[in-house]
Design a binder for these strands. Structure first.
Lengths: 207, 207
DNA sequence: TTGTGTATATTCACTGGTTGGTATACTTTA
DNA sequence: TAAAGTATACCAACCAGTGAATATACACAA
């Protein structure tokens, strides 16, 4: 029976995460992961049944930490809902300026494995993105925004667009542009909400 | 002296485009390209000095056709500027429903080669995306929209976001959502333009 | 027309290295 | 002792790239 924590497995996963994110899936060999984890390939194959399995585990291990980070950025920000959404992009822009930043691991993996639609790693990526979109729709709904699900999807598109465009241009101002667009779309929803005669006008409408 | 058209080179490029787009860069071997082009690997290496060179040529060959396609979709659409921009997304959504569609080759290549920042293929991708953004800013400016460059960038972010998210979810409704967001942002710019007292109100403002 | 030189274009066979994955035996630990 | 975990050594297939020989095409001279 598997223990709840497995140090060796975690060490492999840490090494795999580092390498896969930095260099890509197919560019990193199982040998390279084993060497980085300071053990032999045979041991790695004792803990993971194949490379595909390892790749899936890599993305799975990034699921909760990533979601938690976005939530932290959102919750730590002051101001109206548009400002809190904007804060996510501001933090993202800062992270994107780091040399080691290489975009979104989920999107890059999906891009690389686009010819394997049923790959477990892509399913994990899909679930991750869905979770983020659902969380965003939830906080938007709580803030009383009109059509929170549609707005959340639009913001996700801007965010993932920024992730991807950055890989081509390496210019963090694209992330800021995405943040401005997101804030504008949030304001637009707030205006629509305020205009609706059946609802009392929201006090947090900043202008 | 090289001829203006080189059938053999073109045949290699066609085979490479097919395979690289369908399966990804590192997933396709030079042998596979040579076999698809019905010649030996050694002949391929006579026309291209390396695989990297071939990859760059592949993207270069997609530059103008892609831009022309977007321009065609835009020009063929009737209505206000927001509708013409929306038409690009509508056509994109239709294309995205095809089984063989695998997103944007430029973005996917950049995602796969993210660990090689100076790779010629990424530079070609960057130039391609810049060209599209500049073209979009130009048509927006011609339509009399406020801040055409900022708006063009936001639309590009939505479009590339749709390209990328589609690889994860395979759900064309994301493209439609991006189109709606783009149209909303265009309308927002038009409203701002109409509100500006120093400019006479534009006649093409549809509503 | 025929022969010859030359640059272009193509092929076969090969290299040295890497790949994902495994058969088997050894070591640790409960 | 028995199971879990690790290591050595190995495999067949594949990889990007190359050396040397060859085939083709065309210019020009005899």
């Amino acid at each position: 029976m598997p223990r709840t924590s497995d140090p060796t497995r975690d060490r492999i996963l840490d090494a795999a995460s580092c390498l896969f994110y930095a260099q890509g899936i197919r560019a990193v060999s199982v040998d390279a992961v084993a060497e980085a984890a300071e053990l032999t390939k045979r041991t790695l194959y004792y803990h993971f049944k194949s490379k595909d399995d390892l790749v899936a585990a890599y993305l799975q291990s990034r699921d909760q930490p990533n979601l938690a980070l976005f939530a932290k950025w959102f919750n730590a920000a002051d101001g109206a809902i548009a400002d809190k959404v904007g804060a996510i992009f501001t933090h993202l822009a800062k992270a994107a300026r780091h040399k080691k930043w290489k975009g979104c691991g989920f999107l890059r993996t999906a891009a690389e494995l686009a010819n394997m639609p049923g790959h477990p790693a892509i399913k994990i990526g899909s679930a991750h993105k869905k979770k983020f979109e659902a969380w965003l729709a939830d906080v938007l709904a709580t803030a009383g925004v009109e059509e929170p699900q549609a707005l959340a999807r639009q913001i996700v598109l801007l965010m993932d667009g920024a992730f991807s465009v950055m890989l081509v241009h390496r210019d963090a101002s694209y992330v800021e542009a995405a943040g401005k667009a997101a804030a504008a779309l949030v304001h637009l929803s707030e205006i629509r909400t305020a205009e609706r005669p059946s609802l009392s006008n929201k006090s947090q409408l900043s202008r």
